[in-house]
Amino acid sequence: MWKMIIGIILWFGVVPSLAGTLVLSFWKRHDDRLAECIITGYLLMFAICQIIAIPMIFLEIHFSTFCRILAAIYMITSILGFLKGGKWFVGMIWELFRNLTHHAWTVYAAVAAVLVQAYYYVQYMVTNLDDAYYVAVATTAIETDTMYRFSPYTGRAVTGFNLRYCLSPFSMLQAFFSQCLGVHPSTLDHTIMAPVMVIVAYFVYISMGRLLFSEKSMAGEKKESREKMIGLFLVFLSMVHVTSYYCMRNQGSVLLVRIWQGKATLAAVLIPFLFYHCYRMAQKPWEKGNTVILVMAAFACCLVSSMGIVLPMVMMGIFALLFGVFQKNGRYVAKMAAGCVPGILYGILYVALKALKLW
């Protein structure tokens, strides 16, 4: 039990935090906080998995080899993050604990609401037909030491690859975490990864709140007033989410019912982050590193779902029109175009492999 708890803290807390520290330490952006650090870390982890998993799948590399390489890269990234920005990261943690009892009441209400939503994933479990594929793919990879070479429905060897899923191998990342923690993929998805992703989603909304209620937008207001508004913003979002189960396919529903699935992670975490980040790039064009984070987010979207290859490009295209073309800002258009590169590459790869009938 303690071994699993330590593993959860390591792989879902320490590693992404230090990975985000490594990325953000290159630019010293004054308003980046712990939430931005953790989000950036998850983006980097997802992007690394996407980049190395695709060639290894098509080269039919063993799943165990994939796990060892991915673990080594994550550990190296974490160590470099600690060496380069450890002092900054420890300072953020110290500031968090020092001010733990000096926040507006709305902040504590928001934290309570988020923790209750995360707790329900631990206490209860909701399954649907998609589990028959996504969880089974991860289980099959572990049991056969292969990646997408056996049918998760029948267990029989397949003659080709299902490109729709192979180009977005989020299940392989879940199988990797399952191996690291020593738990079944079903336990990982429903009980561990789901509440973690809920908290990460609200980290994105915290970043949104800080941007919407920034010092510039609330000039003359005290820090306590801005903090109170951010807390109210999160409480309002929580109310929207918990009353969203009138449809199975809206953002609030997938956040609180099946966020462990790749397309739900896309809808609840990555698309909201892209919305926030593209708007931030328009509001703070002088910031360094935004294009790198945008490209990482695009790779992360490609990892979680095949829809993540196309939908982010549509969003970035809309932002390019609104804040680039309409405002005659060519630099912003170029940044949005750079963010579309991962989706374009994987889209071309999909079309080429389908046309050539190689898989």
Rank of each mutant, 00 (worst) to 15 (best):
C49Q: 04
M281L: 10
R68A: 03
I348D: 06
D131I: 06
L212T: 03
D145E: 05
I142K: 04
G308Q: 08
L34R: 05
T140C: 11
I39K: 00
K328R: 13
C278H: 05
N162G: 07
L303G: 04
H103R: 14
A320Y: 02
L70P: 00
L43R: 08
K263T: 08
A175Y: 05
M316A: 10
A175W: 06
L43N: 10
R249A: 13
V135T: 12
A136Y: 03
I344A: 13
Y276F: 15
I271G: 00
Y332L: 15
A175V: 02
I8D: 10
V126Y: 03
S25F: 03
A334N: 07
A297C: 09
H277V: 11
V126G: 04
T139V: 11
F319L: 14
A136M: 14
A338S: 06
I348H: 00
L167F: 08
P55K: 13
P55S: 12
V269T: 07
L163C: 05
Q117M: 15
L212E: 02
K354Q: 12
Q174P: 00
L43C: 13
V90E: 04
N162F: 04
R280Y: 01
A337I: 09
P169W: 11
V240H: 01
I5Y: 05
S186Y: 08
G252N: 08
T291K: 02
S214R: 12
T154W: 02
G262C: 09
A113D: 14
G343D: 07
T77C: 10
W11E: 12
G330C: 06
E287G: 04
A53W: 01
F233A: 08
I79M: 05
Y120V: 13
A175H: 01
C301W: 03
I79H: 03
G231K: 04
I259M: 12
V137E: 14
V137K: 05
L212F: 10
S168P: 01
A334E: 12
A194G: 05
L22Y: 07
E95M: 10
L303F: 05
G13R: 07
L345I: 15
P312M: 10
Y279K: 15
S253V: 03
W27Y: 14
M316K: 08
V341C: 02
I69V: 11
L115D: 01
N329G: 06
C180P: 00
Y202K: 11
V295H: 01
V240A: 14
G231F: 11
V341H: 04
M248S: 12
G339I: 04
I69R: 05
V257E: 15
N162M: 07
L322A: 11
I48H: 01
F170Q: 12
A35F: 02
C37Q: 08
F170E: 11
F66Q: 12
